[in-house]
């Protein structure tokens, strides 16, 4: 048990936290923030588990995947924000309609 597992568990926590916020909040900007937090949790878990190498050097493959993922995340965020603004122009609100629970 090393600090690697601590960070991996923090990643799990961030993923769960983001998923909760994604489901609960109706506002689209909050949903976008929540997805970003979820993504950060996934990257943290990936890189932390890639650090379990016996030597001093970490595994570079998860690092490369995390860098790629970060750039994809920002482009997806930009597209999501543009969609959100479009939703607001069309409906007047940037929130999903609150459905009554059946």
């Amino acid at each position: 048990m090393s600090h690697v597992f601590l960070y991996a568990l923090v990643g799990v926590g961030l993923f769960t936290l983001g998923l909760y916020a994604l489901i609960v909040h109706p506002h689209l900007l909050r949903k976008i923030l929540a997805i970003n937090v979820m993504g950060s949790g996934v990257f943290l878990m990936l890189v932390a588990l890639g650090r379990r190498t016996p030597g001093t050097l970490p595994d570079p493959v998860p690092h490369a995947m995390a860098i790629t993922g970060i750039v994809v995340a920002i482009s997806a965020t930009a597209l999501a924000l543009a969609l959100m603004l479009r939703v607001q122009v069309e409906t007047g609100r940037a929130e999903l309609p609150e459905e009554p629970l059946e």
Binding site: F43, V47, A48, T56, A66, I70
Partner: peptide
């Protein structure tokens, strides 16, 4: 900061600039 602690300076640079 967490990336630096996990010996991933490349990811730390990308996160600081982008994230």
């Amino acid at each position: 900061l967490a990336w630096v602690r996990l010996d991933a300076p490349d990811v730390a640079l990308a996160e600081a600039a982008i994230g």
